[in-house]
């Protein structure tokens, strides 16, 4: 089973995502963070296979965290799950920085699982 960390400032979203991911036999959620700085700390601690991360977060936003993660660990698999997925500049910046995919919010369980299975 592949290890996943979720980084989202919304507890409600993180809970919903955890439920979706844990419902699939291929993945399990090992930790949750609430901002980009926590994403970096958790990645170092947990060495997950996949990071599911929001963009619009306090303290350190998702794109800054993505930049830091990709510089420190070029092999990192990050999926951005964000309400800003439909903003062309944000979407392309995430892909340029090294995100493996971008899922827009609101999301459905099927698209989340399909995306994780594709990149895992």
């Amino acid at each position: 089973m592949k290890k996943v960390i979720i980084v989202d400032d919304s507890i409600a979203v993180a809970r919903q995502l955890e439920k979706i991911i844990n419902s699939c036999d291929d993945f399990y959620v090992v930790a949750q963070g609430r901002n980009g700085a926590e994403a970096i700390k958790l990645y170092r601690q947990e060495n997950p296979d996949i990071v599911c991360m929001d963009m619009n977060m306090p303290v350190m936003d998702g794109l800054s965290a993505l930049r830091s993660l990709c510089m420190a660990w070029p092999e990192v698999n990050v999926v951005m799950i964000t309400s800003l997925g439909g903003v062309g500049d944000k979407y392309s910046e995430a892909i340029k920085l090294g995100a493996r995919d971008v899922i827009g919010k609101p999301f459905d369980a099927e698209s989340v699982i399909k995306t994780l299975q594709r990149i895992a």
Binding site: S10, A12, V13, N56, T82, S83, L84, G85, G86, V87, G88, D89, G104, K105, P106
Partner: peptide, 15 residues
């Protein structure tokens, strides 16, 4: 989170 989704979609539509 609901207004975050709404405003993200507003930003996309405005773009």
């Amino acid at each position: 989170e609901f207004i975050n989704i709404v405003c993200g979609n507003i930003a996309a539509k405005a773009a």
